[in-house]
């Protein structure tokens, strides 16, 4: 098993909440993603064993949702919204700024495996644009100064 006891317990608890256990697939994928950082066949197999649904059905659902990375990402997954409200307030320049700062292109991971930079569609933070999500947290109303500080703090923490 890749999933740890905490994740397994959480997933088991979810199954009991639904009239049909397949409904627990998406929450289970989310729990697994939060633990592992990405999803792959091994994770699907674990989930299939816990909620007793064929593995192919887990994979079928998982591959529909681009929210879950399907291969390893850096310790911090930086997702920058590039949709219209953020773009009007400079999301494209924010992305270039991060590319320069991290010395990677979007879609890439830094050599120290700390940061992966990707762009995503609207995250519902339109009136606090531009914004990015790093792992589970939102960072809103971004300025150069804020971005510098956020990256610095994450580097220091790592």
């Amino acid at each position: 098993m890749i999933l740890n006891d905490e994740a397994i317990a959480k997933i088991k608890e979810r199954v009991g909440l639904y009239p049909q256990s397949k409904s627990a697939i998406l929450p289970a994928l989310t729990i697994a993603y939060h633990q592992v950082g990405y999803l792959n066949d091994k994770v699907y197999k674990d989930i299939a064993d816990i909620i007793k649904v064929p593995c192919v059905e887990i994979a079928e659902a998982a591959t529909f949702y681009t929210m879950f990375p399907k291969e390893p990402v850096g310790k911090y997954l930086i997702q920058v919204c590039h949709n219209i409200s953020c773009a009007l307030l400079g999301a494209d320049s924010l992305i270039s700024y991060l590319e320069q700062k991290l010395e990677i292109k979007k879609g890439e991971t830094t050599r120290d495996n700390l940061f992966t930079l990707v762009t995503v569609e609207c995250l519902g933070s339109c009136a606090t644009a531009p914004m990015m999500q790093i792992n589970q947290d939102y960072y809103e109303n971004l300025t150069r100064e804020k971005v510098d500080k956020i990256i610095e703090e994450l580097r220091a923490k790592a």
Binding site: K22, P27, F64, Y65
Partner: peptide
């Protein structure tokens, strides 16, 4: 219920599929 972050899953019938553990179509 935590969803999959897909726009289409806001469409009510896709949401139903998604909530049933299917692809959100």
């Amino acid at each position: 219920h935590s969803g999959g972050g897909a726009y289409i899953c806001g469409e009510e019938t896709a949401l139903l599929n998604s909530l049933e553990g299917e692809r959100g179509m």
